[in-house]
Amino acid sequence: MSRLFVAIGDSFTEGVGDWDARYPNGVRGWADRVAKQLSKQDPGWRYANLAIRSKRLQQIIDEQLQRALDLHPTVVSVYAGGNDILELRASLTPLMERYEEMVSRIAAAGARPLLFTGFDVRLHPVLEPMRRRNWTYNEHVRRIAEDYGALLVDYWCFDEYHDPRFWGTDRLHMSPAGHKNMAAHVLRVLGVDHSLTAKPLHPRLPVTAREWLHQESVWLREWVIPMFGRRLRNVTLGDHLEPRWPTPIRPADGLKRLAAERDSLARQD
Rank of each mutant, 00 (worst) to 15 (best):
R250H: 09
M227G: 04
T208P: 03
V235W: 12
P164H: 07
D239A: 13
D239T: 06
D147H: 09
A150S: 12
E139K: 09
Y161T: 00
A150M: 11
L172M: 15
D239P: 02
L172A: 10
L190F: 01
P200V: 01
I225K: 06
V218I: 15
R210Y: 12
L220T: 04
Y137T: 04
A145K: 03
D170A: 06
L205P: 02
R171Q: 15
T136W: 03
G178V: 03
G168F: 14
A259I: 00
A177T: 00
D253M: 08
L241P: 06
V192M: 05
W219E: 00
H214F: 14
A209D: 15
H140E: 04
M174T: 07
R230E: 15
H162C: 13
H140F: 14
P206H: 01
K256S: 15
T136A: 08
V186Y: 08
P251W: 03
P200Y: 02
A260H: 06
E211I: 13
Y148H: 14
A184K: 05
T247F: 10
L172C: 10
T169P: 06
N138S: 02
W245N: 01
D154R: 08
H185T: 07
E242I: 11
T208V: 06
P203E: 01
V218A: 08
W156M: 05
G178H: 02
P246G: 07
Q215V: 08
R233Q: 15
L232M: 11
T208C: 05
V207A: 13
V192Q: 06
T197K: 12
P200F: 06
P206I: 07
F166R: 01
L220N: 02
A183T: 00
M174C: 10
D193F: 10
D170P: 01
T136R: 09
G229L: 09
T169C: 09
T236C: 07
A177G: 02
D147M: 13
S195M: 13
E160C: 11
E216D: 12
M174W: 11
T197W: 05
S195N: 12
D163E: 00
P243W: 04
F228S: 01
D253Q: 13
E222H: 13
R231V: 06
C157E: 10
P251M: 00
R250T: 08
I225C: 02
L255D: 02
S217V: 13
K199Q: 11
